[in-house]
Nucleic acid binder design. Structure first.
Length: 601
DNA sequence: ATTAGGG
DNA sequence: CCCTAAT
């Protein structure tokens, strides 16, 4: 039987090229650099992990999540906000912005905190003037359409797909001041845009819902927000703490900008935030264990935005088949660096911000999943395997928005706006600082983000990239600053994969592939024999081969795990010997037939 | 991105 | 499997 299989190889003779490495794809050292950096959208996420049967006020539609299906299906359901108390906050338009971008609105599903969660919110006085962030700041479903058009010009609206509510509603400032007194940018370094800060009309706050909203908003900005008994720790604000000193210098009178003092109250909070933030930075983490050295001092700017999610679990119901229900509070774009000349108008600033945001959204978004602050990249991994389960503790799970690799980075055309662009110079691309990596080291120079990004077709792992934000060029060349990208640390992003022992069948396939391809072409082996096995990388295959060789050399008694047929091990040794020899011979033009011969094939 | 090896 | 230096 076994022999039979051997003879059944689907190939006649080996196909090894004279030079095994010849087929290797050319290496590009600059490869990495050419990757388009992604603009990481930070989104505040908060929610609950609930057992489906937990009896929480969840509707049936939530069942989609973790529905026992292998596919990472994630259905987010939106629910009516707090008994429909949400209101539309109308703002007066000072500057009409073009509606081109209406179609590119950013929709984010929002998950609402359970009612009980609301009650636990701190009732501290709402800071009336702050960027609205939070579910309640949203708009009712009815008004959503309207928002899309007219209001869009001024606000960045993140709505749930169902339009039930707005997950995030960032308002561009209403500031109608004719001129931009000082560098608004500097002023708002903390924020995506200074424009986002705006006092909320008292009237709108009268409603309970609004009040709550305000509070909630505040809380959100602060590091912690309470839902039930749990705190949600926000990691997103890290950037706020990292205001570039450079900008600080340029900052002038705040009063000019009509910024409210309250705005600065944030600061202290941010600090606390930082301390609370916990990022695993150690090399290894296991999904079920969290060995993190908390380096508070490095509020790592995670890729994209991250926020931990408070999760509630119902102990009694924990089981393997438990579904994970999670609520995503909202998404936000926390870090957006924009450079704009002081002479620019407020209107242009608004547009610039809008463009920046829409540009990012144009490419589409992906959702990154983070567990313990580490990005889970393996889509095939089950939630349970990723540590996303009922056992998951709060602030373990997070999501981040990631822009898709811009297929076509197209700066918005000037026609996009009716506003007069201060400069007719083509937009320069300013890198949107992605919050990847912990430290911003302004040592790097700008990289050409526009370089086409080579995309490996078979690459299972997506490439994260930063988005580009077209902005009006500064008057002075010197003024052009690009925030250097922080190199993401893999350790922060990756989790140890679950162990998946090779089956005999896999070994068989591997051996077969190596027999004909050799031991130095793992990529080819992968493509040829394991192309559909997402969890097997060429490194895995190489490692497996290594262990196979070892296994074949040791006595059967010392072997562990699923026993590999001796026949296979023999072939392993054979092929290994052969290819080792080939390698030793360097570039001998020996064809595969030699191995074939030696193997008696 | 891949390879090659050590851990 | 992970981590990394070298390609």
């Amino acid at each position: 039987m076994v022999l039979q299989r051997r003879l059944d190889y689907g190939f006649n003779g080996y196909e090894v090229p004279p030079t095994p490495r010849a087929t290797r794809s050319p290496r590009k050292s600059a490869f990495k650099k050419n990757q388009i950096s992604s603009f990481d959208l930070l989104a505040a996420v908060a929610g609950d992990l609930l057992l489906e049967s937990g009896g929480n006020s969840s509707s049936s539609s939530n069942n989609a999540i973790g529905d026992g299906n292998e596919e990472d299906q994630c259905a987010v359901k939106t629910e009516p906000l707090y008994g429909g108390v949400q209101k539309v906050v109308e703002e007066r338009n000072c500057d009409h912005i073009h509606d081109n971008n209406a179609e590119r609105r950013f929709f984010v599903s929002e998950i609402l905190p359970k009612t009980h969660g609301m009650e636990s919110f701190d009732r501290s006085p709402p800071p009336p003037k702050d960027f609205h962030f939070g579910s309640t700041s949203g708009v009712t479903s009815d008004s959503s359409e309207k928002l899309g058009t007219q209001e869009l010009g001024q606000s960045v609206c993140f709505r749930s797909e169902t339009n039930d509510k707005i997950s995030m509603h960032g308002r561009l400032t209403n500031n109608c001041e004719p001129e931009l007194t000082r560098n608004v940018v500097a002023e708002d370094k903390h924020h995506i845009g200074s424009c986002f800060k705006k006092p909320i009309p008292p009237s709108v706050c009268s409603d309970d819902g609004e009040n709550f909203s305000a509070r909630y908003t505040t809380k959100t900005f602060r590091s912690t927000l309470r839902i039930g008994d749990r705190k949600i720790k926000k990691v997103l604000a890290s950037k706020y703490c990292k205001v570039s000193s450079k900008q600080k210098d340029t900052t002038v009178n705040n009063s000019d900008l009509d910024l409210k003092p309250s705005y600065y109250n944030k600061k202290p909070c941010l600090k606390s935030l930082r301390s609370e933030r916990r990022y695993p930075i150690k090399k290894r983490r296991y999904f079920d264990g969290y060995t993190a050295s908390q380096s508070e001092e490095t509020p790592k700017k995670g890729s994209g935005f991250m926020s931990t999610i408070a999760c509630q679990k119902q102990p009694a119901l924990q089981s393997r088949d438990s579904h994970v229900k999670l609520g995503i509070k909202s998404f936000k774009v926390p870090e957006l660096f924009i450079e704009i000349p002081e002479t620019a108008t407020v209107g242009s600033l608004k547009r610039t911000v809008l463009e920046a945001v829409t540009t990012i959204l144009e490419g589409g978004l992906r959702i990154g999943v983070l567990v313990h602050g580490k990005k889970v990249r393996d889509d095939s991994k089950m939630l349970l395997q990723s540590g996303i389960s009922l056992d998951t503790l709060s602030d373990t799970l997070g999501f981040c928005l990631e822009p898709n690799p811009p297929q076509s980075t197209k700066p918005l055309s000037p026609e996009d706006s009716d506003c007069v662009r201060p400069f007719n110079v083509p937009h320069s691309l300013t890198r949107c600082l992605a919050s990847q990596g912990k430290h911003a080291k302004p040592s790097n120079s700008v990289e050409s983000d526009l370089d086409s990004k080579p995309s490996a077709p078979n690459r299972a792992k997506p490439v994260y990239s930063r988005a580009l934000i077209p902005v009006a060029p500064p008057l002075h060349a010197q003024a052009l600053n690009v925030v250097p990208p922080r190199k993401p640390k893999r350790s922060e992003v990756a989790q140890r994969r679950i162990r998946r022992p090779f089956s005999v069948a896999e070994v068989e396939v591997l051996v077969q592939a190596v027999e004909r391809l050799g031991t130095g072409r793992w990529r080819d082996v992968k493509l040829r024999a394991f192309d559909n096995a997402k969890h097997r990388t060429y490194v895995d295959l190489k490692d497996k081969w290594k262990t196979l060789v070892h296994t074949a050399r040791i006595s059967p008694q010392q072997r562990r795990g699923e026993p590999v047929p001796q026949e296979l091990l023999d072939r392993v040794l054979m092929a290994h010997a052969y290819w080792s020899q080939q390698q030793g011979k360097q570039q001998l033009l020996e064809g595969p037939h030699k191995l074939e011969t030696s193997l008696g094939l």
